[in-house]
Nucleic acid binder design. Structure first.
Lengths: 206, 206
DNA sequence: ATTATAGGCTAATTCCAATTAGCCGTCAAC
DNA sequence: GTTGACGGCTAATTGGAATTAGCCTATAAT
């Protein structure tokens, strides 16, 4: 990886642990293995490093959203994927979603950084809102909606069902971010949540 | 309010908006209406102001927990309160809980500050965990458990039911903290959540 | 071969925020 | 009515972090 990119990587790690203001350009440089003034050959100043991280993340999101849309909007693929959805595969969906968010290194660091910095300006708040509220609800809402269409789940209010699916996942995620030792406990809770969710919304009534 | 206390108050406001590191003792002093060096007549240094806020909050929590226990553990009072619990009063419970958390000035500022500073040290993480995960789940679990005992709600897993009750409330709260303009929307979602919760767990099966 | 550029370094410089020093008025207690 | 503590002020001082200046090497293009 070239220096320019390693700077972003190390900076993100530090920002996610201590927050922008508590990270010194010196710290970043040290991690990268260069001296602080050399950073300025790559970025105009400290703020520019932060901005570059946000930019990069936006790009990743774009790509991701793009690929999801292709999947999500193509009816032929969806039919195949969700036709024979059952309890177990729904639980797998929830778990893999959780574990991806939890362990994907980049995602995790970015989420923590955003958590710390979210009140600094409107833009960051908006990014957070989009990433951890609007997009998950709309994307998962689409998936769950498909399951409703398939008769796997039953409800007259998909958005709220989606909230019931996602909100516990989100809450458990924040718990693990704060204290990774609670991960095992959280996973157990997650599993129970998903089973209960399935009981509540599953076609058990039929 | 005496100066010593006004300092804490203004500091909390600022910390909750910008985070500890981005608030200058100067800012605090200005708000209080004194000069920065005068702050040091009341607190040893900036960190001591922060610590005093945490202390004060801990005290409040103690009191609160104490009073809640008296209510919560006294079987005579509970019976009266939850005997004729119905859908509407359960929804009122959820809404008032949400609105209290959302609008109580002290609570709100403290929550935002804790959100920003939670990764700074173990202690703060623990406070957050306790305040926004463990305690709400155990306290609300007790209330909802009583309702189950009364036959108002039905489940074989009270903790998960409680998670289903609380997690959406928590999520919506973080949304409003970030963008207060979404409060109206959040309130609507909250109401739907509670109605749906009641449908799912209410004695509709009987 | 020359030269320009990229990217590193050391040694300033600059700025700014936290804190200290030291002075002063007020007021309550003796 | 003197005194001491409380709480305020102005004017340093300190210390540290960001950034700039200016130099050097390697390498890639002309």
């Amino acid at each position: 990886m070239d220096t320019k990119h390693r700077i972003l990587d190390e900076a993100l790690t530090l920002f996610s642990e201590k927050g922008y203001a508590n990270v010194y350009v010196n710290d970043i440089a040290e991690r990268v293995g260069i001296k602080a003034p050399s950073l300025y050959k790559h970025y105009k100043n400290k703020q520019a490093i932060f901005d570059a991280i946000i930019d990069e993340m936006n790009n990743r999101f774009m790509e991701q959203a793009g690929s999801l849309n292709i999947n999500g909007m193509d009816p032929t693929k969806d039919a195949d994927i969700y036709k024979n959805m059952n309890e177990e595969s729904m639980i797998e969906l929830g778990k893999s979603l959780f574990l991806y968010y939890l362990h994907d290194d980049y995602t995790k660091r970015f989420r923590k950084m955003l958590t710390i910095e979210q009140f600094h300006d409107k833009d960051l708040a908006a990014v957070y809102q989009s990433q951890y509220y609007d997009m998950p609800l709309s994307y998962q809402g689409m998936l769950l909606g498909l399951m409703v269409a398939q008769g796997v789940l039953v409800t007259d209010n998909v958005p709220i069902m989606t909230l019931h699916f996602y909100a516990p996942i989100y809450l458990l995620l924040t718990v693990c971010d704060r204290e990774p030792k609670r991960e095992k406990e959280a996973l157990k809770t997650l599993e129970e949540h998903l089973r209960q969710f399935d009981k509540l919304y599953g076609r058990t009534i039929a």
